[in-house]
Simulated scan of single mutants.
Amino acid sequence: MDRNFARALSLVLKSEGLWSDNPADPGGATMKGVTLANFRRYVKADATKADLRKISDDQVATVYRRFYWDAVAGAQLPGGVDYALFDYAVNSGPGRAAKCLQAVVGAKQDGKIGPDTLVKLKGMMRATVVDEVCDQRMAFLKRLPTWKTFGKGWSSRVSSVRDEAMKMAALPDAPPPVRVEVPVEVPKPVVPEKVEQKVKEKSGFLSWLTGLFGSGAIGLGWLGGMDWQAVLAGGVVLLVFLLILLLLRSQIVAAVRQIKAEVAE
């Protein structure tokens, strides 16, 4: 995948090293793995070896992306497979790397990774593809006449590529979504109008009853002003009224609370 380009490039550069101009190397003079021919093709047409040795990091990334990564459709390959094929392309050419992948997945080996190759690739496990690509790459390198000179270094490089590609293949192509917990404010229950009306009716009845008992008590007190026995009788009656009032009040309060609790649920 394209998000692996930066990581894959950093791994490739560790293997490529810096300046090299070994006569036995068919690639000729290279700096950070960039050949003079590719530097002239993508950066500066009349570049010299001295210019190549001064190549910037951005120029290196441009060459690797355009000549190798894009050539093997790196942005469309699954994680791990992209790096294994990318490194193969840098080391032995994009065309050969692409044909190797096509041979592994059973597609037409034309050196151009297209829809057919990608569809067949999706039907295979990444680890299997990485292993087979690295195996075929090693088989090719061992057939080269320069194997005796570079074989040890190539073996170490392919082994490292295999290990890193397997790690990348084990990771998901996209990071899991980040879940953000948003506190939800629970609205207070709204008491319907009918319930409010019932509460008012209960309260009104209580007020009326209280007034009635109060008026009765006053009347009895006035009548009892002429006789102490009447006053005593009025006091007893008033006490009874008060007890009844307290009992009714508690029942009404309990009923109101029950109504509100039912609404809240």
Rank of each mutant, 00 (worst) to 15 (best):
A233R: 00
T30S: 09
L212G: 15
A8V: 00
Q229P: 00
K260H: 14
V12A: 02
V256N: 09
P176M: 11
P26Y: 07
E201Q: 15
P183F: 09
P145S: 13
V90E: 11
G114Y: 13
R66Y: 02
P115M: 14
K260M: 12
V253L: 02
I55D: 06
R53I: 08
L11M: 02
L9S: 07
A84K: 07
E201F: 09
F39C: 00
D163Y: 09
A97E: 05
R53D: 13
G123N: 08
A75K: 14
V104E: 03
S159L: 10
M125V: 07
K167H: 00
V263E: 11
A165W: 01
S160Y: 04
E164Y: 00
Y64C: 10
W228K: 01
A73E: 14
A264G: 07
S203E: 14
K99A: 08
I244T: 13
S250V: 12
V184A: 13
V186W: 00
Q197V: 12
M31V: 04
A174H: 04
K54G: 08
K108R: 10
V34A: 01
Q59D: 05
K202N: 09
L220C: 11
L13K: 06
V190P: 08
T210K: 15
L52N: 02
K188T: 08
A217H: 03
D163A: 13
A71V: 07
V178Y: 14
K142H: 04
A71Y: 09
F150Y: 15
S250G: 11
S155Y: 03
E164K: 03
W208L: 15
Y42T: 03
A71H: 05
L18T: 02
P192A: 14
P115E: 09
D82I: 14
R7Q: 02
R65F: 10
F86T: 09
D57R: 04
K122F: 06
K54L: 13
V180G: 05
V43L: 06
V119E: 13
G106Q: 07
V60L: 10
L243K: 10
A139W: 01
E196C: 12
K198T: 12
G27W: 06
F67S: 05
K148I: 01
A169C: 01
A29E: 01
V195R: 12
L238N: 06
D116L: 06
E265M: 11
M1F: 05
D46E: 01
F67H: 09
E185N: 10
R66G: 06
P192Y: 05
V263S: 14
W154R: 06
L247G: 03
E262D: 15
A233V: 00
Q197C: 11
G204M: 15
K99F: 02
E193Q: 12
M226K: 00
G151R: 05
L9D: 11
S215A: 15
L223N: 08
L246A: 07
V90L: 04
S155A: 09
M138D: 05
I55V: 11
S159F: 07
G153M: 08
V190M: 07
G33M: 04
L206V: 15
V81C: 12
R65Y: 06
V236N: 03
A103H: 10
K194P: 08
E181W: 06
W154V: 06
P78L: 04
A71P: 11
V253D: 11
